[in-house]
Design a binder for these strands. Sequence first.
DNA 1: TTGACAAGACCGTCCAGACGGTACAGTAAG
DNA 2: CTTACTGTACCGTCTGGACGGTCTTGTCAA
Lengths: 178, 178
Amino acid sequence: MKVRRTNSRDRILAAAADVARETGPGSLSLDAVASRAGVSKGGLLYNFPTKAKLMQALVEDYLRAFEQALDAARTAGVGGESPLATYIKLSAEHAAESKPSASWIFSAIAEDPEFLTPIKLFRRQVFERLKGETPDLKALLVCYLAVEGLRSMNLFDSDVLSQDERRLLVSSLLEIAR
Amino acid sequence: MKVRRTNSRDRILAAAADVARETGPGSLSLDAVASRAGVSKGGLLYNFPTKAKLMQALVEDYLRAFEQALDAARTAGVGGESPLATYIKLSAEHAAESKPSASWIFSAIAEDPEFLTPIKLFRRQVFERLKGETPDLKALLVCYLAVEGLRSMNLFDSDVLSQDERRLLVSSLLEIAR
DNA sequence: TTGACAAGACCGTCCAGACGGTACAGTAAG
DNA sequence: CTTACTGTACCGTCTGGACGGTCTTGTCAA
């Protein structure tokens, strides 16, 4: 790994996410990303030699960020809160952000469906871990799936649920998770 | 060789879904769809004058099919089963199909994110209807979101849940829905 | 029954444009 | 002298779509 981390790398990543969200996942061209990031196309290709590498970085950064947030929330979690409850809270906060945070995923899948594999693997690990930590399997299943539903709503920028309904849902889930 | 021309429309639609699932949502080209459907590109363009119209037909057919299945399940639903329970059962059956049934949605979104609007509208209507028919809002929220999570799992071809876990989840949801 | 003819269903070719990616010369900073 | 780019020119490929032609089927008058 490189010692010096330029911030143009991060700017490019953020720009890619923005372009995907604003102009649609199918319009994520290298030209668009470069100009959005305030970088020349050559500069973009310098940081990410191919479009696939860009997508890969997007996926890896996203997963790493979530993992870190989860770890932080776990250690910071006040006394006696169950891991499942922590997971629900963190995911709900994530999903409550007004912008769909990960609609670039669609671009990645369109580019190459294989980009799903690391994501699926990560989810599997998280779930398995929760399974080991949660005594009530039924509660875990219901809560995990509902959270997944919430994530999906955010991803598709759905407006089916109102703010209040979302809050009620989360509190219901926390109750189920005890 | 004799070919039934009249249902070539349906063949094309099915071919499009197949191609999207098998070669990835980003590779859904008219050429690929045409050859898969056993139709020339000209023939495809005759049935669907533009790629957007193809996508639109995909969306509309999908929504109509689900709506009809839901209506049928409602009227056929034997005594006293709650509408929410019917919805859960139907969705679970749908999600249990081995192939992701709607991965062409990704193609549609990549083509033009506006294709999400009719879907969002439909979901909203279904949810509002369920809200009017379900006394326990908390149960509705939990079940609806969990079903949405199930749908998402199917869409992303996730293998997080085992067959048994899926069954347990559905029975738990039906219990919550009473 | 037949023959003319229109409409519908489909084919094959061609093309402009967009996209990913390469190559390379230049440059500003440390 | 190296690092980290910028800027431009360019190439090959793929894609949606326009177009004109062809085959099939249905209709209807004689």
